[in-house]
Amino acid sequence: MELLHVFEWFDQSLLADAAKAYGGVFVLVQGVHLLSLALLGGMVLAGDLRMLGLLLTDVPARTVVAATQRWFSVALGLMVLSGTFMSGAVALKLYYSEMFLAKMVALATGIVFFYGIRGPLFRLAADEPTAGAAGTTSIWAVRLTAIASLCIWFTVAASGRWIGFS
């Protein structure tokens, strides 16, 4: 019930008024959201596929992990900002949307997983002489983490698109 009040308040906010009133701005922000998704997806793919040994295999894992994490954070920031603006236009609809709930759960999982598990594990594995093959990090832990990461961010993107269909 309290959550509904938050969505009702958001629906009446100045940000929501702006998102509803200016269609052209809304489309531009949607564009920023999609471009951020592309940037975020590219960084996730490059990092995960590198740790799976499928992409950029001749580039040090440490370099790929560091570069992709930096730009991932930029993309995530842009996605959250643009997504918040977009939500203002349909705040009450989103409250009742199961797909929106699915996306938010997936997004929260993705953020916690990225910064709490994937990042530390990949950095640890990347610092070892042969990433994951020897030392303290299990190669299977690294691979499973990469696959889980790909699945989570696929879910975020797909459920986000399906909000529009629901």
């Binding site: 998704l37 940037l39 997806g41 590219g42 793919l45 490059a46 930096r70 698109r161």
Partner: peptide
């Protein structure tokens, strides 16, 4: 349509990395 949008992450994601590298904004040590 979902596949069309999701493929943005593959196509544009890779393109962004290449372009950002050319501009000297990412992967500068590679």
């Amino acid at each position: 349509e979902t596949t069309h949008v999701l493929t943005l992450m593959v196509f544009l994601g890779m393109l962004f990395i290449i372009d950002l590298r050319m501009l000297g904004w990412a992967f500068t040590s590679v």
